[in-house]
Simulated assay, not measured.
Amino acid sequence: MSSSPPPLRRPSAPPPAKMRTAVLAAAADLALVLAFAAIGRDAHQRGEVITGVLATAWPFLAGAAVSWLALRVWRAPLALWPAGVVVWLGTVAVGMLLRAATGQSVVLPFIIVALLSLAVFLLGYRLVVAGVRRFGTSRKRA
């Protein structure tokens, strides 16, 4: 009598709503990092609009991607902690390291502006979503 091995279990795919949330959060992070770069370039009146924004943004986009992968942010992409904080700090830290490694300027005032601006952007929308969800949940109970 031979016993067959148990069937291999495939990892379950995330539910469509959770996948959609992760995709939307990643798109929001991408758009907000691009907005940060565009605002910064505009404030310094630099030309080359599209290529310039991409040249400024790529180190920070790489930082956000590294953060998403390192923490597996897609599991709870809208959580302020740890997802939002790790994406924010990782975006700035890796972004600044890549800027320094590629000969772009990294000065204290820029680091401070990046920390503050990206905190408002990357943590801000997560706070708004949490507030809206909390408000919606409390209204359903009433």
Rank of each mutant, 00 (worst) to 15 (best):
S2R: 13
S2N: 11
S4Q: 15
L8A: 14
R9V: 14
P14M: 10
A17F: 08
A17G: 10
A17N: 06
K18M: 02
M19N: 00
M19C: 00
M19H: 02
R20G: 13
T21S: 15
A22K: 05
A22Y: 04
A22C: 06
V23E: 06
V23C: 11
L24I: 14
L24E: 07
L24F: 10
A25R: 03
A25F: 02
A26M: 15
A26F: 15
A27M: 08
D29G: 04
D29P: 06
A31Q: 05
A31F: 09
A31L: 15
L32T: 03
V33R: 03
V33S: 03
V33N: 03
F36D: 02
A37L: 06
R41K: 08
R41S: 05
D42N: 11
D42G: 13
D42M: 14
H44S: 07
H44R: 12
Q45M: 11
R46C: 00
R46T: 11
V49W: 13
I50T: 06
T51Y: 09
T51P: 06
T51F: 12
G52A: 03
G52P: 06
V53F: 01
V53C: 01
V53K: 02
V53H: 02
A55H: 14
A55E: 13
A55S: 15
T56A: 13
T56H: 04
A57C: 08
W58Y: 09
F60M: 07
F60I: 07
A65D: 02
S67F: 00
W68C: 04
L69G: 10
A70T: 09
A70E: 00
A70H: 04
A76S: 15
A76L: 11
P77D: 03
P77T: 04
A79P: 08
A79K: 09
L80V: 15
L80M: 09
P82S: 12
P82W: 11
V86Q: 10
V86M: 14
L89I: 14
G90D: 06
T91G: 08
T91E: 02
V92E: 00
V92W: 02
A93M: 12
G95L: 05
M96R: 13
L97A: 15
L97Q: 06
L97S: 10
L98I: 07
L98P: 03
R99Y: 07
A100Q: 11
G103T: 04
G103R: 05
S105N: 13
S105P: 12
V106G: 03
V106A: 07
L108W: 14
F110H: 08
F110R: 03
I111Y: 01
I112A: 13
I112L: 15
V113R: 00
V113H: 01
A114Q: 05
L115M: 13
L115A: 10
L116H: 00
L116N: 00
L118R: 02
A119R: 02
F121N: 02
F121Q: 01
L123F: 11
G124S: 01
Y125R: 03
R126Q: 07
V129C: 07
A130S: 08
G131H: 08
G131E: 05
V132E: 00
V132W: 08
R133C: 10
R133T: 13
F135Y: 12
F135D: 10
G136L: 07
G136Q: 06
G136K: 02
T137A: 15
T137Y: 09
S138M: 09
K140W: 05
R141M: 13
R141I: 14
R141H: 14
